[in-house]
């Protein structure tokens, strides 16, 4: 094995580190699976499930007023919300499985889910 003889001890170490980095990167980058649907909750209960492949806009009546949520090009976002700080609106587009926007004052949340159920981003 003339090629193997060219590996020095440290080269094996560096190769192993490289392999473990690659192995670790697969689940880290792809853990959520492909984003399939957006689940909208109001007051902790599921209000609607939107298929991300169909563009549409939905209005969710919450505690303070109406939260508008839009699906477009396999992404979802909160368009408007009566909340004071607008955190969920400013989060912008959600497109990866596991991403979530919570409009706490209005008790409305929208989360992107993949084909398989995984951890949600809050349980980490």
């Amino acid at each position: 094995m003339r090629w193997l003889a060219l590996f020095r001890h440290g080269d094996w170490l560096v190769s192993l580190l490289g392999i473990s980095f690659c192995a670790a990167s697969f689940p880290l980058a792809w853990h959520g699976g492909v984003a399939e649907k957006a689940v909208i909750k109001r007051g902790g209960e599921i209000f609607a499930e939107l298929d991300l492949s169909r563009n549409r806009q939905i209005e969710v009546p919450g505690l303070l007023g109406v939260t508008t949520i839009a699906v477009e090009k396999r992404r979802v976002r909160v368009v408007s919300d009566p909340g004071l700080h607008q955190y969920c609106v400013r989060q912008g587009w959600l497109e990866r499985a596991g991403e979530i926007a919570i409009c706490a004052p209005n008790q409305v949340s929208v989360q992107v889910l993949g084909g398989k159920e995984t951890y949600d981003s809050l349980s980490y």
Binding site: L6, F7, R8, H9, G10, D11, L13, V14, S15, G18, F21
Partner: peptide, 18 residues
């Protein structure tokens, strides 16, 4: 700068590629 006895062109190449 890594000691040449242990780390050769293979190590350099992997590190450079990353």
């Amino acid at each position: 700068r890594l000691p040449r006895r242990w780390f050769g062109p293979v190590s350099w190449s992997i590190l450079a590629a990353f």
